[in-house]
């Protein structure tokens, strides 16, 4: 570790560590890029790729992100943007789950879809994308649908859970298992011009916001579909909530955001579990 420290100190530009030096340290000292990143941050060096985050994210906060593990469940419309932004943010480990391959009808909105990638597993393409953008981020990819059976093992050890799912039923399972594990859960859902975001902190229950459990588990999106911009907008709001939760900077908890991009209205309403007994 002392050799690593000396090497990094010698390569630093002020308190910034250039990417080339991070790679060289990894090669010379046999440490992973992730380990070098964590060590650099511990010693007060900011990897240069994050230099434009200042003063929004300090070195100790970047270290906190580096040591975080976030699950993104569903790697389609919301999921692609969630993964892209969390990787650029420098969240150390991303746990991904999605059973699907890219299909032609994904091309209108799913960030990681392309003509060349049709037929390829979404989680594998996501892993490649993260490796292209930020190889210091570790990806744990599961080509599987989230379920009550595999849920606990998928989420164990995570700092937060993010909703990239496309149906109400599985969302209820994800919210319930996040709650069982006392993990913050950042919900997002989209349909046409509309979307919603909510945060369930441990001890809270946002399940009524997810919609009633019905046979198909679909909502407005069954008719409206989802255009290019709605997943990008809602996923970005979710990632800002994840960042705040990881950094202890508050959250949307106790409120719910409804976004109406058609009329450009963002309503944040106080939200409580139930009116049971009131007015009856």
């Amino acid at each position: 570790m002392e050799r690593l420290r000396e090497f990094l100190a010698g390569q630093a530009e002020g308190d910034l560590l250039p990417w080339e030096a991070q790679c060289e340290a990894s090669r010379r000292l046999g440490a992973s890029l992730a380990m070098v990143e964590e060590a650099a941050l511990e010693w007060g060096l900011m990897p240069k790729r994050y230099s434009r985050n200042r003063d929004t994210i300090s070195i100790p906060q970047q270290l906190r992100l580096c040591r975080s593990r976030v699950a993104v469940i569903g790697c389609g419309g919301l999921g692609g943007y969630l993964i892209e932004e969390l990787a650029r943010l420098g969240v150390g480990t991303l746990v991904l789950a999605d059973p699907d391959v890219f299909e032609e009808h994904n091309l209108n909105r799913q960030l990681f879809s392309s003509l060349a990638r049709l037929g390829r597993a979404k989680v594998e393409v996501a892993r490649e994308r993260v490796a292209e953008v930020n190889p210091a981020v570790t990806v744990v990819a599961h080509r599987a649908a989230f379920s009550r059976e595999n849920g606990k093992s998928l989420l164990s050890g995570c700092s937060a859970v993010v909703d990239g799912l496309d149906n109400v039923l599985t969302r209820h399972a994800l919210a319930a298992i996040s709650s069982d594990l006392s993990l913050p859960f950042v919900h997002g859902a989209i349909a046409g011009w509309y979307g919603q975001v909510a945060v369930q902190m441990p001890g809270e229950d946002i399940s009524p916001l997810l919609g009633p459990v019905s046979a198909q588990g679909k909502g407005l999106e069954a008719n409206l579909g989802n255009p290019a911009f709605t997943p990008a907008a809602i996923a970005s709001l979710q990632v800002s909530e994840v960042a705040k939760i990881l950094l202890g900077r508050g959250s949307l908890s106790g409120r719910v955001l409804f976004a109406n991009l058609l009329d450009m209205e963002f309503e944040v309403l106080r939200y409580g579990r139930s009116t049971a007994g009131r007015g009856e």
Partner: peptide
Amino acid sequence: VAIFPRIGGG
């Protein structure tokens, strides 16, 4: 009273 449609996509 606020009434919201079900939104389930991702």
